[in-house]
Design a protein around this nucleic acid. Structure first.
Length: 289
DNA sequence: TACCAGGAGAGCG
DNA sequence: CGCTCTCATGGT
């Protein structure tokens, strides 16, 4: 006898589901009937939230909701994280603008593959590419009646069997050989993403940067969004611009110096602070999504 | 139209 | 080293 239910209700505080799912850390969530549909691992799920709880509906009975609690980081005390941010005007403004923003805990392979596709792409385009990739190479998943078909994120082995031309047809352009090379490296067992968690952040970063198409920035995204390494501080064009304007006005500052500043200035949850600065910069300077 | 987008890697001096 | 150029594609 299998105990299980297709509906889970989880009490939360300070959790803005919409901001969390759309702030540029994950690329697969779609608006649906006042909530969001997406895929976590090999499970399709429909999420909706009110002020006090998040409700999840799945297509198949769930006996243990740990996978969802882990992905959404439901047990994290956000206020404790925010208290570690430096007490200063820029961070107060960012926190005020991003109330309830959380960091997810994503699958490392999906995260590294997605961010390889992210380089010099707008978030809406990354979403399109990832969507095409899943549609064409991901296994179909059961969904609730009346919902659109859903697919798992394609495995490294599946993408390793594709050709560069086939991947380019998913509109990823020059990123195709990077994704293919990384898929083949993972599929061959030459690099095992499941063995990075115990490493130091520096060691884990240098492992990730062995993958083609993965430099410092993408490695830091994976360290932060998939493994939860808080010293990881992805420095993209938005965050660099924000740091320069907020902390180094009218001065020329190298990327290396920005990294050193971030590591020293933002405290034990620097990665979290980074995502607040990223989203703050985008919502205040970008008219569209 | 010109410029930009959650960059990385190769080639240069 | 650090700098510049290229890579593909689509949005603004």
């Amino acid at each position: 006898m299998i105990a299980g239910t297709t509906t889970g209700v989880f009490p939360v505080r300070d959790y803005d589901l919409t901001t969390t799912l759309t702030c540029g850390q994950a690329f697969r969530w779609e608006r649906c009937e006042g909530g969001w549909t997406g895929v976590i691992g090999r499970r399709w799920v429909w999420l909706h939230a009110d002020q006090f709880s998040i409700t999840a509906e799945t297509a198949e009975p769930v006996a243990d909701w740990g996978w969802l609690a882990d992905y959404l980081q439901l047990e994290l005390d956000l206020s404790a994280v925010l208290r570690t941010f430096p007490d200063e005007a820029p961070m107060r403004a960012a926190v005020a603008a991003c109330r309830g923003l959380r960091l997810l805990r994503q699958d490392p392979w999906e995260c590294v593959a997605s961010f390889i596709l992210s380089s010099t792409k707008q978030i809406c385009q990354i979403r399109q590419i990832v969507s095409l990739l899943c549609e064409r190479y991901g296994d179909p998943l059961p969904v609730l009646p009346t919902h659109a078909p859903a697919h798992a994120f394609p495995s490294p082995a599946r993408l390793a069997r594709a050709t560069e031309a086939e991947l380019r047809a998913c509109k990823m352009g020059f990123r195709a050989p990077y994704l293919l090379g990384t898929a083949r490296t993972i599929a061959s067992g030459h690099l095992d993403l499941t063995r990075l968690q115990p490493l130091s952040v520096e060691a884990a970063r240098s492992e990730l940067m062995k993958l083609p198409g993965v430099g410092r920035k993408i490695a830091d995204c994976v360290l932060l969004f998939a493994y939860g390494f808080q010293p990881a501080f992805p420095l993209d064009v938005w965050v660099m611009k924000a740091l320069r304007e907020l902390y180094f006005p009218r001065r020329r500052v190298s990327v290396q110096r920005l990294h050193r500043f971030a590591g020293a200035h933002f405290g034990p949850n620097a990665g979290y602070a980074q995502q607040y600065l990223f989203h703050y910069a985008r919502v205040h300077k970008e008219p569209g999504s």
